[in-house]
Design a protein around this nucleic acid. Structure first.
Lengths: 348, 348
DNA sequence: TTGTAGGCGTTATCAG
DNA sequence: CTGATAACGCCTACAA
């Protein structure tokens, strides 16, 4: 670019002082509308554009917050980010979204990188280890909020769905529609990521599974709890296959999250088992998978938009010097009944 | 927060001048390592953190670029954004991702909003109208690059897949595997969005359809070109249903993009038609839909990562004052053969 | 090797 | 209503 056009350039050209130009450009009351118009015309003519940096330096802040999203998973977080953007915009804040993969220092490394970014706070989504992220935030001195149901121990105000209640609803639905021998499918820890297997949401959903079955007077058969690779593109689910080979009485499958259902359904189809006539299948999240698979999936819908809105609200609150308490903020899910559990979906 | 700790605070506390502190914090050669260590210790002690704003003001730039992504569609653009992040990082740039919906001024409005954001350039993805976006970029004075195969007329260096060649490959594959009566499914323009129907990529894919059929000596039957609502959650595809009711000879369906295949496959399943035995189905994009539907979809894979990398490269080039020419940069797609067209997928 | 001083472009505070 | 002037926090000649 040529040369930056500054306030004083405009001032000189318009034959007024810098202060007047500044007032004219911002909508200050203390300028006569005639001079304001004249100055604006000159500014436009010269192609004047205010310097974000100078303004931020002077007024101490960029009015921007960051959202760090996992870039290794499908975009379930998009509605979350969208809600953050909306909410922040209402408060005059910009939102910067940073997709961060597993590599190079992970989340904590990414946060350290934020020290070079004009941002005043951060919302982290899906955190494997809140402690290190918390330390990174403290290091660069910005407040944080988490949208995260993976961490059992939390160091941030943490927003999540009510996994226990939501899973209860799904499993109760299975029982109510006459199922009694329910498989629970968990993701298998891949390689060196033991953290994942301890994910809080998995624990909660499993707890719901055990509780509901017990309350229904059903015995908990540990052989019905299986672990499978997390790869929605796989042609089938061998662990489920083995189970079905030796246990024909299975009449329902609860996948700990929707994405596991893709391979489960393929395995059932390959064996000529009809869903839901022979076996009902349900998931959790109401993620895109749920509507794309055949048949479409009964599941618990997470209120992503509301969760995003709350995250932004809490963070903005932190910036306004009233740090919200570090606790879990849980949101109820909604049971969505589709063709994978009942032949004629009845809505409730 | 209390009070900002500045360079001069550190200088005073360490009993040196500001310049020395500045040099010690950056890795300047002209400081004795002993003072450097001492100063760093003091700085750490005081919790000193450099001001992004002041630094940017002083050195004229934030070293950040923006990527504007559509937030009303599923995240097919994620690999694109990821590649942009990687590429930018290599050049020492941060990437800010801005999800933008259709509302409030649309893309052009979003770009205007960037004038308050510390960013030096912008990559726009999936642009309905390049002209207005171009004007917005000029207005706020930043260079842009588009990843976009919707606009027939371009005002940015525009990156896209080679839609014509890619679609040719898919349709040729259908012909080669013995199909001859091929339906072409297009999205119906919804409400007041005529721009969409003229999308360049649709024209190109349709042109390929017509050319390949003609070259194969097949007559083009206009009744085989149908428009359907674009809603992947719909239970079926009525337009296809009507066609099948009156034309039983159909033996293949080419969906102008993968997402249309979801309802198409449901329609076929509901009618008891087997895929691929009775009818083959193929799409375009190799988007997530392709692996989630049953059966999995033969399609043309767009090289999203490479496209993102190129976009970032071109933009960084613009920033380095060598504006790349405004033309279309096309990337070849790759035919991915799956179970929706051949019973035993043969890879090629 | 270290310190001093000036300026990056704004906005806010004063006088006029 | 308008104009001069002083910060905001950092970097970098230039001088010591």
């Amino acid at each position: 670019m040529a040369q930056r056009v500054t306030l004083s350039d405009v001032a000189r050209a318009a034959g007024v002082g810098m202060a007047t130009v500044s007032r004219a450009m911002g909508d200050h009351p203390d300028v006569s509308s005639s001079t304001r118009e004249r100055i604006r015309a000159v500014a436009h003519e010269l192609g004047y554009r205010p310097s974000v940096a100078a303004r931020a330096l002077r007024s101490g802040g960029f009015r921007a917050i960051s959202v760090i999203v996992p870039d290794n998973q499908w975009g379930w977080w998009e509605p979350v980010a969208h809600a953050c953007v909306e909410t922040a915009a209402e408060a005059g804040y910009q939102v910067l979204v940073h997709p961060v993969g597993g590599g190079e220092g992970g989340l904590a490394g990414a946060i350290d990188g934020l020290s070079n970014v004009p941002t005043e706070g951060v919302i982290v989504i899906s955190v494997p280890d809140q402690k290190s992220v918390r330390e990174a935030c403290d290091r660069i001195g910005i407040p944080g909020v988490a949208i995260d149901d993976s961490s059992a121990d939390i160091c941030f105000p943490s927003i999540s769905a009510d996994n226990y209640a939501g899973a209860r609803e799904v499993i109760e639905h299975l029982i109510e529609t006459g199922r009694s021998r329910v498989v629970f499918v968990r993701p298998r820890l891949s390689g060196g990521a033991p953290v994942w297997g301890d994910a809080f949401y998995l624990q909660e959903r499993e707890r719901a599974y055990r509780d509901v079955l017990a309350e229904a007077g059903l015995e908990i058969d540990e052989s019905l709890i299986i672990d499978t690779a997390f790869d929605e593109t796989a042609p089938g689910c061998p662990e489920l296959g083995e189970l079905l080979d030796r246990d024909v009485a299975v009449d329902a499958i609860f996948c700990s999250f929707d994405q596991l259902a893709a391979t489960v359904l393929r395995e059932l189809a390959a064996r000529g088992l009809r869903v839901p006539e022979d076996i009902a299948v349900a998931g959790f999240d109401d993620e895109r998978t749920a509507v794309l698979v055949t048949p479409q999936l009964t599941t618990a819908r997470q209120p992503y938009a509301e969760m995003g809105r709350t995250a932004a609200d809490l963070l903005l609150q932190s910036l306004a010097e009233t740090a919200p308490p570090v606790r879990r903020y849980e949101f109820p899910t909604q049971l969505v009944v589709r063709a994978s559990t009942v032949s004629t979906p009845r809505l409730q």
